[in-house]
Computed example of a mutant assay.
Amino acid sequence: MFNFKTLAMGAVAVALTASTAMAEKVLRIQSVLPTTADEVVMLKAFGDDVAALTNGSLTIEVLPAGAVVGPRDIMDAVDAGLVEGGFAWTHYWGGKHVAANLFGAPVAGAGVGMDNIAFLSWFQFGGGKELYDRLWDEMGVNVKGFMLQPVGPEALGWFPEPITSMDDFRQMRFRAPPGMVGAAYADIGVPAVAMGGGDILPALEKGTIDAAEWCCPKPDSVFGFQKVLKHYYLQGLHQVVVNADMYVNGDFYDDLSDLEKKALEVAATASLSKSMSYRIFENGKALKDLTENHGVILEDTPADYFTEYSAAAAKALQAAADDNAFFAEVWASQRAFAEVAVPFWAGAQTSNAGLGRAFADTLK
């Protein structure tokens, strides 16, 4: 285990020496992903916006996974000041505080029907951001967080053959996300295995697992799952909303000028929209390529999956709320928002989805 505080003292000394040679501030952000990932492409675009808004007084340097510390140590490294910033999905830190799950991957839409767009409405106008800003103190880390990249809904995943019911699903050793999302799978009898994205294809090839999920058509195709599995299910509940964010060391953030702080805020808000727009088109192109050029077959998710997984998610959410007061507060805020917004949004989206499905059917 790294002694982050000791290492940080050396890093600060180097930074102080360097500061005499240059006035600009450099925010180094270590990602949990390689630099070729779509998330990093969007993170670099965020950095370009920050540099432009500050006339270059604050620049962002993106470091790949493992550049300074291991992916699971990023939060501790940022907290200690060993690296100025980190980038991951919020729910990666559910082990530090269970409420991180409600910001990063609220299982089954937090059990209240929130999709990624509704989540953004709650985050920006329904009190979510204020609760998000409190998360880091609740977690006990010296960081300032910025929500950057909403994704979703994620695909149910890849299978070696069609599944017609949950009984078929339960026969599959299935790569699922860690934490509350994977626990809900285990609760309904699916043999869920957590592993990193780069480990999934080798595990499929060796037969260690039978089926898998990661994200969406573009990231999934980059990992190459289509080389082994051909049956793809888009409709899933486990990660209807998934959010990636950036963490800045609190002392580094406090030393920024008001203009630089505002630039981070404005660029982060822009990133919420830009990343979602980017994802829709990129996933559309990838799905077209998968089905037309790689023999991938789109399947419909069995109806009993939705009822069984929803019940397991509700049970997990209630247990966490009973155990943790801040989790209960965040979940109550999401529910209060959903009681107002979801009936409208779900009704509107039903007609939108119907129109889209009708057009998609003409392409077949």
Rank of each mutant, 00 (worst) to 15 (best):
W93L: 11
W93S: 06
W93H: 11
G94V: 05
G94K: 05
G95R: 10
G95M: 07
G95C: 04
H97C: 05
V98D: 08
V98S: 12
V98F: 05
A100K: 03
A100S: 15
N101W: 09
N101L: 06
N101Q: 12
L102K: 08
L102N: 07
L102F: 10
L102S: 12
L102V: 12
F103K: 01
F103A: 02
F103I: 08
G104F: 09
G104Q: 06
A105W: 06
P106W: 10
V107L: 09
V107C: 14
A108F: 13
G109R: 11
G109N: 12
A110V: 08
G111M: 12
V112Y: 07
V112E: 01
G113P: 11
G113F: 09
M114F: 11
M114I: 15
M114Q: 14
N116Q: 11
N116A: 10
I117D: 10
A118W: 02
F119E: 04
F119Y: 13
L120P: 01
L120Q: 03
S121N: 14
S121A: 15
S121C: 12
W122D: 08
W122I: 09
F123D: 06
Q124E: 15
G126N: 01
G127R: 14
G127C: 13
G128K: 02
G128M: 05
K129L: 07
K129C: 03
E130K: 08
E130L: 10
L131Q: 05
L131I: 07
Y132F: 15
Y132E: 05
Y132C: 01
D133W: 03
R134D: 10
W136H: 02
D137Q: 10
D137H: 07
D137W: 06
D137C: 05
E138H: 08
G140V: 07
G140N: 07
G140L: 10
V141F: 06
V141E: 02
N142P: 07
N142R: 11
N142D: 15
V143R: 01
K144H: 10
G145T: 03
G145D: 05
G145R: 00
F146G: 00
F146S: 00
F146D: 00
M147C: 06
M147S: 09
M147F: 04
L148P: 01
L148I: 00
L148V: 02
Q149T: 01
Q149I: 01
P150Y: 00
P150R: 02
V151M: 09
G152I: 04
G152V: 03
P153M: 14
P153K: 15
P153N: 14
P153F: 11
P153C: 13
P153L: 15
